[in-house]
């Protein structure tokens, strides 16, 4: 297990290096000048700003000095937000995004697993078709549609929930969490239904039934553990996806998070901000994939044996 983790960690280093290098050169190859502004700048001012951000140096020199700073954990100064470092901007945006991601994940797992298990108990009946159709709709409905719809119904018509902000008014985190979690809930529902169906036809379940165990114990104790393996494998990448894909929800609900930073960075050609957010997201994706792999191995006795066998 330890060896498996170590190998995977070592593999992550070249991946991250490739991400940094590719992003660095792609961003600089993209058309558009980060210092361009709609008002003309006197040449002296432009020269001053170019020197300030080191853009007057050859690209390879910029790259080397960027790598040097990165190794010390410094993402550099933002081009757009004068006097702010990218570290500072990330520190401001990440907590809201992470919190939103966690709530959305909870929504996804709670709704998804219950719907999936519920559907799997009576396959090909109304109990199966209804939640699965809803799940299909959830997958198909983009958050830029679901968000405003929820806002309209629960915020403006019923006036139950706040429609914007983050941690300002009690309850303002509910609608964004549901909006972001909904699509993932749908995936989780389909995965857990599939997983449960497979497990529930296994011999050991039949044995459990034969022993006369109550059905709820069979499902929750013996069924769920195996049935949720596909869900667990999905959760790692899904969480990384939740974090890096929250731009729309953050925009719809006026949330001060990373998603907006990421997209704004790209629009403004804020080189350091694009680099910083990309590197951070890449790291998160790698880490969560790794965690879900470890968890899957730990949950699945067959895999566990295989890795233990290979490491001996």
């Amino acid at each position: 297990m330890l060896r498996f983790t170590l190998i995977r960690l070592l593999q992550a280093i070249p991946v991250l290096f490739a991400v940094v290098t590719l992003t660095f050169f792609l961003v600089r190859a993209a058309p558009g000048d980060p210092l361009a502004s709609d008002k003309a700048m006197p040449p002296e001012v432009y020269a001053e700003l170019t020197a300030l951000y080191g853009l007057d140096k050859p690209v390879w020199q910029q790259y080397v000095s960027y790598l040097g700073n990165l190794l010390q954990g410094e993402f550099g100064p933002s081009f757009k937000y004068v006097g702010r470092t990218v570290n500072e901007l990330i520190a401001a945006g990440l907590p809201a995004t992470a919190e939103l991601g966690i709530y959305a994940m909870l929504v996804a797992v709670l709704i998804g697993v219950s719907a999936g298990v519920f559907a799997a108990l009576r396959p090909n009946s109304a109990q199966d078709y209804v939640p699965m159709s809803v799940a299909m709709m959830g997958i198909c409905m983009p958050s830029f549609l679901l968000g405003p719809l929820l806002v309209l119904v629960f915020g403006l018509w019923l006036d139950w929930l706040p429609i914007s902000g983050w941690g300002v008014i009690p309850g303002d985190k509910i609608l964004p969490a549901i909006t972001l979690g909904a699509a993932y809930a749908a995936y989780v529902a389909r995965l857990s239904r599939g997983g449960m169906l497979e497990v529930m036809s296994q011999d050991y379940i039949r044995t459990a039934r034969a022993k006369g165990l109550p059905e709820w114990r069979i499902v929750f104790k013996h069924g769920l553990r195996g049935g949720l393996i596909p869900v667990v494998a999905f959760l790692g990448p899904a969480f990384a996806g939740l974090l890096s894909g929250s731009f729309v929800v953050e925009t719809v609900f006026q949330i001060p998070g990373m998603g907006r930073l990421y997209v704004q960075g790209a629009f403004n050609r804020d080189y350091t901000l694009i680099m910083g957010t990309t590197v951070l997201f890449a790291t998160l994706i790698i880490v969560f994939n790794l965690l879900s792999d470890i968890l899957s191995v730990w949950l699945n006795p067959k895999l566990r044996q295989q890795y233990q066998g290979s490491s001996q």
């Binding site: 219950s114 109990q127 629960f154 139950w160 929930l161 008014i169 009690p170 059905e215 709820w216 499902v219």
Partner: peptide, 30 residues
Amino acid sequence: MNLSLSAQRLVPAVAVALLVLLTACSAGET
């Protein structure tokens, strides 16, 4: 079956709980 009975009880209970939770946190002072 035992389970569908408990599920039948569980689902409305969860729905009611969610509804209560939602109504409890009405939007408050703007």
